[in-house]
Design a protein around this nucleic acid. Structure first.
Lengths: 220, 220
DNA sequence: CTAATGACCTAATATAAATTAGGCTTTTGA
DNA sequence: TCAAAAGCCTAATTTATATTAGGTCATTAG
């Protein structure tokens, strides 16, 4: 079987992904949107994939792509990231001794020293962070406006979007039902790290999750 | 869940069948061809199926039918239709005493007084009527141009397509190898009935056939 | 009996989707 | 090092598909 170029491989994966997500074969234009290119480029790519025997299609028929030789799902390298427990109502102990499990994360999202925390609560659902998910966090003491951060306010550890407007600092949930936490002069705010990535809490082959125990999740 | 009419049920089954056969949701036109109707009729049917909650679709998107409540395969009611024997070289005796068996027929194709005849010969193969099949016939003395009819010409009983052009009447086989029977002034033509349906001669669960004996088949 | 539905149709129209043409870079293999 | 192939683009065009409009006829529930 002939080798695929990068672009061709990306295209083939996009086909499979959309097919799964939509329950039907995607159109040329849908693929174009997905890949951020224009339809004729996709069309060319499809011809090449067809020449190489990876797909089959019916000329001029909508949504007629058939995948003949599925690619191994997403060959980006996965790296294990430790899931660290948090002391329920105190400062998180970010030490490997506190590791309660691990998640596999595509290594292109990782930078610096990272760890993961299990999410509790629904305050970030508009950012697609749900209860049971794992947030991958880069440990860093500062963050920028609009970063999603793990922070401690007093005794409480939380995940929120950081808002800095001059002197005014807020931790904003991504859930219209909840109110922002306004950081006053005498409030103690400690940034623990910045959220780089979210892993679905669902353990799949593409998304392996192992946890020893389920203590100390982050209340968001 | 709201009840489906016959036509709607047929449509839903066609969707499922084509979906299975093609590996993708069929288009409106493909369904139209499959069902022998025009696209707008299918379109209406789809709206009704959607209203009743059996399918879901995305407006204006090709091949976007999703079946939500699959039908149990072929729930159309089957009705027994008697298979009648014929006196070998004479007028068929269309009486129940001559019944040599029965076939089960979806009752939505039946109208009026019906009976079935077993097919002999291959003169109608282009109309998908094959040797050993059963034609379901509505007993009626007249028929229209292009109907498939059971007719007697002189002593012979036959199944053919009726062609009426002004005074000129023919019984045309659906098989390019055979010639039409031209009905002259002094020929005696008697229409016995119109063919409503064909049952495959193969006895399946979906298509039960029982025959006591195999005499008096119709020569076509 | 009668109005409402359902099930068709023909003829258009509107929109989606696929495809072609022609040109511009970048990569890649000989 | 240089031509071919890969990857992209814009602009049209063609074809497939969905949809609307405005009828007919038959069946069905009141």
């Amino acid at each position: 079987m002939e080798q695929l170029t990068n672009a061709q491989n990306t295209l083939l994966q996009a086909i499979e992904r959309l097919k799964r997500a939509m329950g039907m074969s995607p159109t040329v234009q849908e693929l174009a949107v997905e890949l951020g290119v224009k339809a004729p480029s996709v069309f060319e790519g499809l011809k090449r994939l067809e020449d190489k025997g990876y797909i089959r299609r019916q000329a001029r028929k909508a949504r007629s792509i058939e995948v003949l030789h599925a690619q191994t799902p997403d060959k980006t390298n996965l790296t294990a990231v430790p899931v660290l427990g948090m002391v329920a109502a105190g400062q998180p102990i970010l030490a490997l001794e506190n590791q309660i499990g691990q998640v596999m994360v595509p290594d292109n999202v990782l930078r610096g020293k990272c760890f993961a925390l299990k999410v509790q609560g629904d305050s970030m659902i508009n950012a697609d962070i749900f209860e049971g998910d794992y947030v991958v966090v880069r440990q860093q003491p500062i963050a920028e406006n609009s970063d999603i951060v793990v922070a401690m306010v007093g005794e409480e550890t939380t995940v929120k979007r950081l808002s800095i407007e001059g002197e005014h600092i807020e931790l904003r949930p991504e859930n219209q039902k909840l109110k922002p936490i306004i950081i006053g002069q005498q409030d103690e705010l400690k940034i623990i790290g910045k959220v780089l990535h979210v892993c679905s809490g669902v353990d799949t082959e593409a998304n392996p999750v192992t946890t020893k125990q389920e203590i100390g999740d982050v209340e968001i």
